[in-house]
Amino acid sequence: MIAVRAELPAPPLVELQGVDKVYGRGDAEVHALRGVDLGISAGEFVAIMGASGSGKSTCMNILGCLDVPTSGRYLFRGVDVATLTHDQRALLRRNFIGFVFQGYNLLPRTSAVENVELPLTYRGVERAERHRRALAALRDVGLEGRELHTAAELSGGQQQRVAIARAIVSGPDLLLADEPTGNLDTARSLELMRLITTLNQERGLTVIMVTHENDIAAFASRVIRFRDGAVVPGKGA
């Protein structure tokens, strides 16, 4: 028994058990997710693929504790997220999860370094320390010398790097990236993927990434495919 157990994969960092997500009521009802089961362990780099409208973003929102399942269970480090209050879920995001969006979502008219400082503000880090750590994170994503530029003064690739710096500055366990390269050209996309791969390999950061493109998904160690709100069985899940 003990020997068998040792060969099992590490316990999952996040686990979805029979998760349904239904939007709307009555005629307007949309089943975005139907009985999704999946587990992702700490340190993994997982790509989620699937057609548009197949429920990828819905799944990411639930994994990111921005939303809750209509039914089924979502366990984050073994804790059922449904049992947490609004505030507790906010704290969970604050302390364990970093987000990267397709549209970068930087604060407009705010410098790169101030954008990166933002999560630390909510963690109560002192101003000087905040600044120091934000500069370090920007250096890690290769944006040295661009610290004082605002979003409008940065290219798309650079903005997405700022977003990654903002996501990792507080040292989260999990990075959720919903189509991070969706707005970038191929060269910029590959650069960004190399950065994310480095973070995954060198820091052990767990990465879950939604993408449409096979060559982007190829950076991941595992690919999960969605179809009509459910995980396609086979290799992956």
């Binding site: 990111g64 921005l66 609004h86 505030d87 906010a90 704290l91 969970l92 995001r93 604050r94 302390n95 999860i97 987000f99 979502n105 930087l106 604060l107 407009p108 933002l118 999560p119 909510y122 963690r123 903002r166």
Partner: peptide, 16 residues
Amino acid sequence: TREIGIRLAIGARARE
């Protein structure tokens, strides 16, 4: 609104 969304995603509580 979008800024508020970003702050919430980052982990701001409603009271903050």
